[in-house]
Design a protein around this nucleic acid. Sequence first.
RNA 1: GGAGAGAUGGCCGAGUAGGUCGAAGGCGCUCGCCUGCUAAGCGAGUAUACUGGGAAACCGGUAUCGAGGGUUCGAAUCCCUCUCUCUCCGCCA
Length: 422
Amino acid sequence: MLDVKFMRDNLEAVEQRLKTRGGAVSLARFRDVETRRRELLQQSENLKALRNKASEEISQIKDKSQAQGRISEMRQVSQQIKGLDEELAKVEEELQGIMLTLPNLPHPTTPVGASEADNKELRKWRDPARFDFTPKPHWEIGEALGILDFERGAKITGARFTLYKGSGARLERALINFMLDLHTDRHKYVEMLPPFVVNRESMTGTGQLPKFEDDLFRLDGLDYFLIPTAEVPVTNIHRGEILKGADLPLYYTAYTPCFRKEAGSYGKDTRGLIRQHQFNKVELVKFVRPADSYPELDLLLANAEEVLRLLGLPYRVMELCSADLGFSAAKTYDIEVWLPGQNTYREISSCSNFEDFQARRASIRFREDEQAKPEFVHTLNGSGLAVGRTVVAILENYQQADGSVIIPEPLRAYMGGLERIS
RNA sequence: GGAGAGAUGGCCGAGUAGGUCGAAGGCGCUCGCCUGCUAAGCGAGUAUACUGGGAAACCGGUAUCGAGGGUUCGAAUCCCUCUCUCUCCGCCA
């Protein structure tokens, strides 16, 4: 959520910056509703002040029959207050609705662009390996090795669900443990294992709701949702809290499955593991002081990159342009891994600074010291990494001419010493 | 799923025949004093949000005692609904 006062004072500039995300933006209704809100509030509060004073006077009068005049006078005032408050509630609801559907302001360093084609490549790590045979896509490799079973996944549930078998299942689990160990032991994140189902407040806090309800799985009969990313439960750990400045920055990591309806993705990535309704991810989440959030974003990005480096997977880092930015983000870097079987780079991590956008929605604040005023923290998160897509990258990058797949060295200890899946 | 108890400020905990309660007291914390160090002691202070005025310091108003609604001139206190926590029983990985 944006800061209402900042918007009021910088309406033009805010409108311009929001427009760089693409599409028309008008804040005229915001301005009117916000102004009306303050008018009504003033009127109502003035009458309440009057009533409070009168009530106190009435309480002093011993003979209540003497107070009848004031009491009936105040009865009128209370009626007026009730009317004003009813209108105020409507106005505030509308204002809240507007505020909850406005996306974050892109950071000044976010390149302005019209589509994902305008994302900027920042750097590349390792050139794609050359194959002396034609590299296959992972779904062919995985099916041939008997470790991925798309047909049975579809039988059990439906399209975009996959059954992992044997060494495939073990590889997925190895990656989860490898990533968690790296981030906790080396990068000093605290491991969390949150609920995979959250309530509406949590979804609103991080910005999935109210705008993107169609993308979420909702439990029938309950106002609970399957999480689309660990960002939701982990960021909401501190919803409604005032943290101690001395405890910042907080680094959390969590493995969770992620559930996405992928509405609007019909016909896209229909083969293989790239786009699933359920996939595993290890997430990195930070709560930091506002002044530190950009250096912290660089560190978080480096922590995610480290996973790919240790696994020896070629990748590039993209700086997202304004049009490609997620709803809540001010600044995002995507890490894209090289997939030789598909001859392309694919997103495997997305690292973002949300500044105070989520903190304001979820009311996550900190107090620098005992007598300081509470301030909103900045929240950040990034995938560290998407596990299913890492399996994809390993199968495709480490495939051999005979159809087997070499296990990257750091994973072997997690695979019971296995060096090759064949 | 059944029966009961409860939700008050950073924490503990008073407060229910409605008014002087933003809320006693204690702990904690901050500042000052005192003590040769430490501990103890003494004094003062210590919620948040919105809103009006002000360059600011600050001053004023309103709201908040789990959430929402109701009764009333007036609600932490009365009524209704919901949520959560705890205890017992049942069921169960």
